[in-house]
Design a protein around this nucleic acid. Sequence first.
RNA 1: GGGCGAUUAGCUCAGAUGGUUAGAGCGUACGAUUCACAUUCGUAAGGUCACAAGUUCGAUUCUUGUAUCGCCCACCA
Length: 723
Amino acid sequence: MNDKFLKPYNPQETEPRIYKEWLDSGFFNPDNLPERHKIPYTIMMPPPNVTGILHMGHAMMLTVEDIMIRYQRMLGKKTLWLPGTDHAAIATQARVEKDIYKKEEKNRYDLGREELLKRIDKFAKESHDTITSQIKVLGASCDWSREAFTLDEKRNLAVRTVFKKMYDDGLIYRGNRIINWDPKGQTTISDDEIVYEEEKTKFYYFKYGPFVIGTTRPETKFGDKYVVMHPDDKRYSEYKHGQKIDLEWINGPITATVIKDKSIDMEFGTGVMTITPWHSKEDFEIGERHNLDKEQIIDKYGRLLPIAGEFSGMKIAEARLKIIEKLKSKGLLEREEDYIHNTATAERTGGKIEPQIMNQWFVAVNKKFTLPHSEINGISSGAETTLKEIMKNAVEGGLVNIIPDYFSKTYFHWIENLSDWCISRQIWYGHRIPVWYKGEEIYCDIEAPKDDGYVQDEDTLDTWFSSALWTFSALGWPEKTKDLELYHPTDVLETGYGIIFFWVARMIMMSGYNLGTIPFKNVYFHGTVRDAKGRIMSKSLGNGMDPLEVAKKFGMDAGRMALIVGIAPGTDTKIAEDKIKGYKNFANKVWNIARFVFSNTEDVKYDPTFEDYNISDKELIDERRAVLEDITGEMNEYKIYIASEKLYHYIWHRFADIILEESKKIFDSGKPEEKVSRKQFLLKTFDEILHALHPFMPFLTEEIWSEMPIDNKKLLMIEKWPI
RNA sequence: GGGCGAUUAGCUCAGAUGGUUAGAGCGUACGAUUCACAUUCGUAAGGUCACAAGUUCGAUUCUUGUAUCGCCCACCA
């Protein structure tokens, strides 16, 4: 027995050494796996954003995926786990801009596009290096030779190719539509990037000719020359649709037009409202229905335009108070009430969203097009379909299996309410839109036009556009690569349920559209990792836990176990140091089992094919097989949270507590045959335990197994799973 | 406002396609031990499985409703 077993297990020394052995072996790359590994099994790593460092949520994700991959590798699959990072356009740019402003008090316009991009690239590179080294500490057995970045050249080609194809199919279009404008970030954002915050404000009632209208936003009311009510509202039946009414308003007399529209809620306020189609989605839609004029009131910096007369140039907050004052002095303010409502803010910058009508690029989700090749249920090759239908059918037909199942309900609910996706962003870091203009002419192609005089669109694409291509772009598409043929569709997408819409749905959409296939067969949602008090870990709370610290203090194997045992998919979990410490003790327990087994079996030669067991050992073998079969079943159903717990229990409370204790008596006073039988049994059982435990605690098991008295052995990571 | 989920031992959570004593980890109490164990082992206490009604021979598990909590979505001016 190696003397190192006389000391407690030392993960800090072991883990980096073992990771290097794995890397040197080349077995993370499926091309280098032995002959028996034939059937492909693929996981694309959800690329972490290059905005900083990994947190415990990433650690959980990587652990779950590593367990799946290691398990499948041991089963004999040709396993590819492809790592990468995400440029995360708006998040990264916002982060770097903030840093620059703090240090130099300069904004992006002071620096200019080129200089800002240079600085972001540098930051992204550093962040990437930190992240990849963290992934290695976690023990991730991913194929570094295939690493990809969502903003590298190959991925950029994929993005341009898709854009061009969708443009030609009429699925990407440019239009003046109402979008979410973030005055702080100076960009549009998609509906999904909005977070609602509760706001206490005032609800004002103003006299508007013969009506009383309610509003929370007096500063938008300058252009309001339409007064809208429900056609069935008896209180206002004397007013006819299209009727003109002269009335006194903020800056003098105006002529208002009566509009009857069924979208009006008769119960709310006075049942009458004026509309501002340029700055409200609902008003915009009413305006579209009745073909009404639209006027811009607020500019993109949140200041009032000349239409506001004496209030022109003022910021919203300032103007609001002054306008109320004026209306009050004119006797037009009837009353005001306290009001609580949700206000839209930008997820990344916290800016207050100001709806605006702008010329932007959109993906049409309800537009029909012909899908030349389809493997998706309910859509035949060459049939007409829509992007929405692709998303719906892929899951409805059971091609994409969502774990846990109840998230498919959330998914369908979202799809039903889905509208076109605004993909253009007025930021500089990201994939530039492959469209060029010359006068009125618009040119869209993969490459820039050769003729002079074309100017490229200034905007970049929503970061999720490139993420949506990830399963196939990272395998080399649009090139027809061997990898693409072999590894797509992938087997599992493992990610947080928080990005089901942002990412999961859009991957299904893009894979369906571009390849006619699903991007993955299973979606496994992990929950959110929270602190011991159930709070989300965040920088501002200072309650974050650094995976590197965990590795240093307890060993990563212990950290991994703490992140998966007993944690059902889709369920949030609280993690405290006590739990990790428990699995550190477990690692040491396994280490000591090794010490006991090895030191008590030195006088026999381990024979894995030994069969001459006595009756009681045979019974134990049956039991062992039953346990391992049970665990295998759970693993095949992606129930790693149960499999790991059962294994833990068998190792500690069955094998160590009962079987080893009993063995002491046998070694002390048993018959010679009994001793041999038991020694072979212990070696064989421990051997299988190390195999089964390997996906969960890879470092520890690899280290111990290297001391197993077996001839010509390689690495545990490519050994056969015991069942 | 719409949707989804949760409510099981002091704490954190599993679980049962309905059927004898409902589980784990941590914690607690008592005892043993340095004989593989930066310890570990044994024993014990502790639960009308949120509440109510229904289906059933039988429900904590299925159905409906109620309450509380959480999450997601949403244009009520």
